[in-house]
Design a protein around this nucleic acid. Structure first.
Lengths: 212, 212
DNA sequence: GCGTGTTAGTGTCACTCATACACGAACGCT
DNA sequence: AGCGTTCGTGTATGAGTGACACTAACACGC
């Protein structure tokens, strides 16, 4: 018997960047996405955040709602609805997950329970799409970063190599990057300049000034 | 006391095109969006569809999930979550709404209950965004239409005038339109050619053939 | 201190795409 | 036959995109 009176749950697709894009799965009997029912008095976002914090030791991560599934859209017989989120974090924040959590590349993730694969795919699509018109890629990087690092993030997500010069030109003429003045020495070669992301309100202010 | 165990509800922002973009509100004591709780055994999409059908006499309409709100994101004290949808239909399908429903232009809609205005804004933003990279505008038109009608839809949603020649060139070189061969006489002036939307799978097939 | 290996950083040219813009064509009506 | 109205069309110019190769700066080993 169907019963929509069950608690809604949240499920989270947490990505990080570690030599390619990785997804966090939690184990036990079988690998699946971090998920669980909303508790009394808890908001949806808070619940999703809790799912993440349960698996990795960090709560300051980028979190965005993805889609809301029910038995029909998830392809399961289950009753109740699942509000899904995706989350992004740089590796240095979430590098060591809990004992029964692990990072998987999208290509070689294990079989997931009904519907979970669908959610992962959906998150991947959204991530790829937002790469083009947002600064979402920066969620995988620390505050200061080099252009080569940023390019590596773009290449990992879009799964295609990018031309270095065109990439730099595009990004540098986008108002979003500020050169910090710092450099990073990283081996026996020319050091790289460091950049940081300009705050969105400052970008807006800048454009007001240059309404070109 | 908070209680997330209440039934989820759906709310729908139904748009049509009638000398500009219009939203359907339902009355009674106060104007609000068509909304209501999901029934036992009912899917989310089915519930949203029912909300629409309750207000206008038509069920074959374009329906897409928008966002899922809770008390926190909606700015209300309410418990429970609201899965919102937006829907699009040509005027000739939904022209005569039920007695206590009415079409409002976005600009002169009445004050809405907590959160509903937020949902409408969200739907408007989504609609505008999707205009650019989908064929969503056609949901406002009958099967056969003229380019002038299509342009009017684009102008109403984007709220800016478009250059006729550039518009036509862009659309005609997009693989999505097929000239039907028919024409429409519509007054004492040159008749307009009729077009219809090519089915997405046929567009894909076409692009395979011309992988340019 | 000099050579070598490695990554960082830069400019141009060709081409495509977007924008701005004005007039003849086809019809209904009087 | 003339008029009013909407339909339908081409071009020129500037902006943006994609492809492409070399020098700069450093660490290290000798």
């Amino acid at each position: 018997m169907s019963d929509t009176n069950t608690r809604p749950a949240t499920a989270v697709v947490l990505f990080t960047m570690d030599r390619g894009l990785k997804v966090l799965l939690v184990g036990g009997s079988r690998w699946h996405l971090p998920c669980g029912p909303v508790e009394d008095g808890e908001s949806l976002a808070a619940c999703a955040k809790r799912m993440v914090t349960n698996a990795v030791r960090h709560s300051e991560i980028y979190l965005e709602q993805l889609y809301t599934f029910d038995g029909a859209t998830l392809g399961t017989q289950g009753t109740g609805i699942v509000v899904t989120y995706y989350a992004l974090a740089p590796l240095d924040k979430v590098g060591i997950p809990d004992r029964d959590s692990r990072w998987f590349a999208l290509a070689d993730a294990p079989a997931l329970p009904d519907g979970h694969q669908r959610i992962v795919d959906c998150a991947g699509d959204r991530l790829t799409a937002k790469l083009a018109y947002t600064t979402i890629a920066h969620q995988f990087l620390p505050d200061q970063f080099t252009l080569a690092e940023l390019q590596a993030v773009y290449e990992a997500i879009s799964q295609q190599p990018l031309d270095k010069r065109n990439f730099r030109r595009r990004l540098q003429s986008s108002d979003h990057l500020v050169e910090t003045g710092g450099i990073r020495r990283d081996g026996r070669h020319r050091p790289a300049r460091l950049y940081r992301l300009r705050q969105p309100d400052q970008v807006a202010a800048l454009r007001q000034g240059n309404p070109k």
